[in-house]
Amino acid sequence: MSSENAGSGETTLLLIKEHWMQYAMPAFLIVASWGLFALCTALSRAFMSWNHTASVAALITGHVLLLLFHHAAFYRLFSSSTTRVLLTNKRILSSQGSLWLRENVIDIPLWKIRSLEIDRHGLLQHLLDYGAILLNRRELPSLPLIPHPQAVHSRIVSQLQEMQTAFGNSTAGSTIPK
């Protein structure tokens, strides 16, 4: 995708949404919370004829666990769903945050980037093709959970090379007065 911000001459090159693995933990929490609730409800029924207090305790525990994990899972899911990374011809923009508690907007000018690394470890990251892109050996904020990091890395590198070529042409064309 490419669109141009006519006012500043900035062109958007690539919009990146984080890999779907960011939803793995929330999905697990949702399933676990309802599973625990079902287990506690079953235990409550089993204890009903044996000990009424234990039965009520099991039921309350199930409800509290469901309340905590269910809402925490969706909180994390909604917080992750608004995370974006945008590559333009001038900078990298990244927005991360969580509902109500944190908002983090990172603006990295491309001219500040001296090195790029792809950090991908573990079988899962290789199989699902995602990883982190590290900038200036972590001196600048890194970009986590990037899908197809090789392609994104290539795109950033090609843009950096274009910038260097344009800078070289502009300095070669300028004349130094004697």
Partner: peptide, 9 residues
């Protein structure tokens, strides 16, 4: 800024 530049997408 991200939302403004990628309004349609």
């Amino acid at each position: 800024p991200i939302g403004q530049m990628c309004a349609k997408a």
